Computed example of a mutant assay.
Amino acid sequence: MQLLWTQLPSVPDAEGFASPFAGIGNDALLVGGGANFPAKRPWEGGTKIWYDTVFALPSPDGAWRVAGRLPRPCAYGISVTHGGGVICAGGGDAREHFRDVYKLKWNGGELAVETLPALPRPCAFSSGALVGDVFYLAGGIEAPDSTRAMHTFWALDLTRTATGWRELPPWPGRERMLAVAAGRQKGAGQGGEFYLFSGVALRSGANGRPEREPLLADGHAYDIGAGVWRRVADMAPRVAAAAATPAPVAPDGSVLVCTGDDGTKSHLNGHPSHPGFPRDVLAYKPDADKWEIAGKTPFSRATVPTVEWHGKWIVVNGERLPGYRSPDVWALEIR
């Protein structure tokens, strides 16, 4: 497997955004919302700001333009592309997390927002992916001050949205947020699978505020046809939280975990010696149930969305270091 990275035009914001929504509408790349620290960093007393601007890039060699606005400022939700638009689910702001689900549609000159059935509960920092026509969403946290992550698994059939979200059996492991998720369709008539790897569990700290536990390593696969979970190989040689999501899937079916936080440098947050997040790409091989290192990224990222566009996987903005975002947009070609 060969991983080829190229850079696309940067989003027109000096700082860039953590965890915006991203997807394809009318063959344009749409990026909306997200959060950043536009002035001081958090350890300097800076204030995080949430955004509602939606940008559009009509072609990989085009120029960004403002397409419109989200219904409200939002970040840390999950987005997928389906039916010519971008399905956006959950997320939140400084005060609350949302149940909102909507579809962004772009005709080249005007952005339209179509309301879809709300989530069963508010959530942000969840993990999700599309398998066929069904949008699957796992875990997250219900409120900004939650001291326990969610152990929920929901599905919305995007061809029959009036039926609403279905609650499915959750994976047989710890509750979590910021896990790695991916969807993979098998051959014709063979169904598909939803994968969930690593992530973060929470506990209540001494002051009653949420505190992260050591990152999880376990992996799980949900067989769409059978409706059952199975345990798969633990992530190795490292774990990953907030990696590029949904995780790219290679033509051979490998799930690629691009960068993400392995939790080993958190003691350096805010220190100039912080090296950034790991830059390796881990590949999970479903048929062999094993992990291997597939290559490197030219960047360090966490809380970053992906979208498939023009035969490549696009990695949009995200955190380059704790407290620092990036406006960069990268394209991955898998050979």
Rank of each mutant, 00 (worst) to 15 (best):
Q185E: 15
D234T: 03
G260Y: 00
T161M: 04
R176E: 00
W5C: 05
F194C: 09
D52Q: 14
W64F: 05
P275Q: 07
P60M: 03
V281K: 04
L332R: 03
W229F: 11
G219M: 00
D93V: 01
E333V: 02
I49G: 00
P58F: 00
T53S: 08
D52T: 08
K285Y: 05
L57R: 00
R320K: 15
D218W: 09
L256A: 05
G311K: 03
T303M: 10
S19C: 11
L119M: 10
T81C: 07
L111N: 11
L216M: 13
S59H: 03
R279T: 15
F153T: 12
L57Q: 01
R325A: 14
R95G: 03
L282A: 03
V131Q: 08
L178W: 05
G109V: 04
E333D: 07
M150P: 12
D157Y: 09
T152Y: 10
R230D: 03
A129T: 07
V54P: 14
C123R: 14
A138Q: 06
R301C: 11
Q185R: 15
I87C: 12
G92R: 05
A283W: 00
P251Q: 04
V113K: 06
R174S: 12
P272W: 08
S198C: 15
L119V: 04
G33C: 04
G92E: 01
G227N: 02
F21L: 09
F21Q: 06
P60C: 09
P272D: 09
D234P: 08
A288H: 04
R238A: 13
E167Q: 15
F55A: 02
T152R: 14
A118M: 05
D52S: 14
A302K: 07
E308D: 10
S266H: 06
T297G: 03
E175N: 12
A288R: 13
Y222Q: 10
P298G: 09
A155G: 10
E167D: 12
W5A: 05
R238N: 01
Q190A: 13
K186M: 12
V249E: 01
T297I: 11
S59L: 02
D287E: 15
I78W: 03
I78H: 06
R230P: 00
W171A: 12
G205C: 12
G263K: 11
S204H: 01
T245K: 07
A244V: 15
W229R: 13
P144C: 04
F197D: 03
F37S: 02
R99T: 12
H267G: 10
S254C: 11
P42T: 04
L4M: 12
M150L: 15
E110G: 02
P58I: 02
Y51M: 01
T245G: 09
P58L: 01
S146I: 10
V228D: 11
Y324W: 13
P12A: 02
N207Q: 11
G187A: 12
Q7H: 11
F37E: 04
A241S: 15
T81H: 07
S79K: 04
V249M: 00
P286L: 11
A226P: 08
G32P: 14
P117S: 03
W330S: 04
A181H: 10
A18S: 15
V281I: 15
A236E: 07
